[in-house]
Each structure stands twice: as structure tokens, then as C-alpha cells.
Design a protein around this nucleic acid. Structure first.
Lengths: 209, 209
DNA sequence: TGTTAGTTTTAAACACTGTTCAGTAGCCCA
DNA sequence: TGGGCTACTGAACAGTGTTTAAAACTAACA
């Protein structure tokens, strides 16, 4: 069934094409600027052609959010290989920040967009776990737990401590992505975040008495 | 000229009425759900009546953002009276978190909404400083500087250290406001944030060697 | 090769959006 | 009572997301 296979491939190709252009459009024109007609024009189809693939405009962003988590896990692979838990925690944070700054639009959709947030909430309320987010969080919490066990982190509840680290890096990147710390130069952003992150980690490192 | 005064008062009353209902509508229906027609209906005027007061839909949100910073400064007044800089820093953070959780929609508009972010960015690029944000940041940085001077914080650049604290609290509250840590129970949110915040502050406190 | 069956894509239509503006209503002062 | 001014109305415009009947295309069979 070579023809069926090709059809399937074509469908997947269009699916990916929509996602690709939606992300690009979102990056430069924002949510309201990403209209279905503009998107259709970019991929040389008519508006209706998108709907068999995505029932909604927001379904597109939800799909991008899922894709984003896959890429985030990719970015976590290298740091996760680090044997020393403290060093691993440090590298995971760096990888997180790096991912966010290099994929700002995607990070936005994953962690800042309110439409995707509403969808996540709906998922949970329907008792269908939000796998993407929970998996990413588990990686962090396990590493934190190891650090607590070795004494590299001061005693505390793993969930609370993990939440501190996540909040800090999430806060740093979202302040910039949402333009609340207006420094025109992007390199200055990166530098401020990198140095602030170092300071934070140095202070959090526990030296048992 | 009593009639002129009354007219002036009426205008201000309508101005405030629009803001009040816009915030309420935004809180329960979000940005897209806050339509000009719905807003007009809520205050018993027709659509066009809003435009002499606000040139744009986004102008309404920008006005709310300014109002939000006024309220945030109000919330800062009490903690700012605290003489001990470290205790002041601690209380400022608590006040910040409290403000964000008690005025989630307003905090959203101030720090998370991308439309207001674009406007802030435009302000800065036109070389017109963003007074609201800069003032709030100054309060924090000055307190951090004092803590650095007394040795309550490990040596570092005041901007970097201030950024760490701001990022941490901002991250904590925005994760919840944007539904990325889905705990159904609101009290659980508050508790997790409070305890995580305590942990963070304990670790950041520097004991000179 | 011509016909048919089955998809996929189109384009027109619908209700709704933000925004503008000619017209209207209401008030104040002469 | 009339005139002038201001504030408000509501219809209109272009553009939005979404639906759907029709058209176009593809693949397989006679």
C-alpha cells in the first residue's frame, strides 16, 4: 500500500507545516496577529484546510505546547547524564534557561500563554493528568531529593525546594520574555540571568555544620 | 462653576466605572472574553461611549496596569517602614506575594499580559522611562543594597541579587496564576508558596565567616 | 481509458470582533 | 423659547474564528 503510506506522509507533512508556520507567526505577531487566514496564506492553503487537522485555533497552540515539552526533554538529556546530583541540578537549570531564551515563543506557549493554561487546567479537572508538565517536574524533584539526601541542600520538603528552583528560573526568563525588565540589548539579558543564577545557586548550596 | 465641576466628576466616574468592570470581566472571561460590547453592556452604555475615554481596548488594560502599580505601592508601605533591611526584604516579598494572590487579575495585567508588555517595550524604545516598573524595582534594589552593606546578603552586584529575589517571587505566583502547577485547592497554593518562600529566604541569609 | 468512490481542499456564509463617525438627545446659559 | 455644546448612540466597516456545501483531485477497477 504505497499510496496509502504516501497519503499518510502528506497528512503528517501538512500537520507539521501548520505547526511550524503557526509558531513563526506567533513569534513575530503574537496571538491576535496569528490569524487562521494569515496562517493558511503562509502555507498556501485556504482557511478551511486547517480544520481537519486542528479543531480549534487553540488546538494548534496546545499541539505546539506538547512539542515544546518534547524539545525541553531533549535539552534535559545531556544534563541528566551528570552523576553528581548537585552539578546535575545546576546544569538542568542552565539548560532550562537556555531552552527558554533560545525558544522564547515556544516557552511562552508552554508556560505563559493563558489559553494553553486554561486547557491544562481543564485537563486536570477532568482527572486526566497533565503528563508533559508532570514529567518535567519529576525530573527536577528527583534531582532535588538526591541533593537533600547528600546534604548538598539544606533539609526541607522536596516539593517545596523543587518549587523554589523552578520558580526562580521561570521567573527570570518570563520577566524578559514578557518584556517587564526592559533592557534593549539581548546579550545583557543573558548575562544578567546567568550571573543571577550563579549567585542563587551559590547561596542555595548547603555546607553541613 | 458648579456644573462644570459636576461634569468633570461624571467623567471621572465613568472612567473609573469602565476600569472597574473591565477588570472584573477580565478576571472571569480573559482577554478575548472582555469584548468592548460586553463591557459597554455591563455599564449600561453603548460601545462608542468608551472611546472618548480610552482610545483602544489595550489602553484600558494599560490604565489598569498603572492603577495596579499604585495599589502595589500601597501594599509596600507597611513593610517599607520596617527598619531592619533584612526583615524589610522579607516582608516586601511577602507583601508582593500576597498582593499577587489577592489581585490575580490585576497582577496578570501588570506582569504577565503580553499586550501590556508590548506597550511597556514601546515606551522604553521611545526613551520614555517606564516609571511604574522602575519605581517598584528601585524599592527592592535599595533594600537589597542595604542588606549587602550589613552583610546579611553574601557579596554580589545589587542588580543581580535584586533580580534573584524578584524572579523567585514572580515565578512562584505566575506559575499559579497561569495554571502551570495545577493544584485544585487554592489554600494549597498559598501554603506551598509561603513555605517555599521561607526556605528560600533562610538559605539566602548570609552568615559572615 | 473512462467511470466511480472516496478524500481533501475550497470558498462562501455566519455570527461576532474592535473601531469609526454621522446623527441624536440632553443639558446649560442667554 | 431658542441656540450651542457636549456626550452618547448605533449603524457601518473591515477583519476575526468556524462551519459546510460544493468542487477538485486521487486511486482503483471495469
Amino acid at each position: 500500500m504505497s499510496t496509502l503510506e504516501r497519503r499518510q506522509r502528506d497528512k503528517e507533512r501538512l500537520y507539521e507545516l501548520i505547526l511550524e508556520h503557526a509558531l513563526a507567526l506567533y513569534a513575530e505577531q503574537g496571538y491576535e496577529g496569528t490569524t487562521m487566514r494569515k496562517l493558511a496564506a503562509h502555507i498556501d492553503y485556504s482557511v478551511g484546510a486547517i480544520y481537519p487537522y486542528f479543531s480549534d485555533k487553540d488546538e494548534i497552540f496546545y499541539a505546539l505546547h506538547v512539542k515544546g515539552f518534547e524539545r525541553l526533554f531533549e535539552a534535559f538529556k545531556l544534563p541528566m547524564a551528570e552523576p553528581d546530583p548537585w552539578q546535575r541540578l545546576y546544569s538542568l537549570g542552565q539548560a532550562y534557561v537556555r531552552f527558554a531564551l533560545e525558544n522564547a515563543a515556544l516557552y511562552d506557549i508552554m508556560f505563559l500563554m493563558s489559553n494553553t493554561g486554561a486547557r491544562i487546567r481543564a485537563l486536570i479537572e477532568a482527572e486526566e493528568a497533565w503528563l508533559q508538565g508532570q514529567n518535567a517536574y519529576t525530573v527536577l524533584r528527583d534531582t532535588v531529593s538526591e541533593c537533600l539526601a547528600t546534604g548538598k541542600l539544606a533539609p526541607g520538603d522536596p516539593d517545596q525546594v523543587a518549587f523554589v528552583f523552578w520558580s526562580a528560573v521561570h521567573g527570570m526568563v518570563s520577566i524578559f520574555i514578557r518584556n517587564r525588565m526592559v533592557v534593549i540589548d539581548t546579550d545583557k539579558h543573558t548575562e544578567l540571568i546567568a550571573k543571577s543564577y550563579s549567585y542563587l545557586m551559590q547561596q542555595m548550596a548547603h555546607t553541613p555544620t
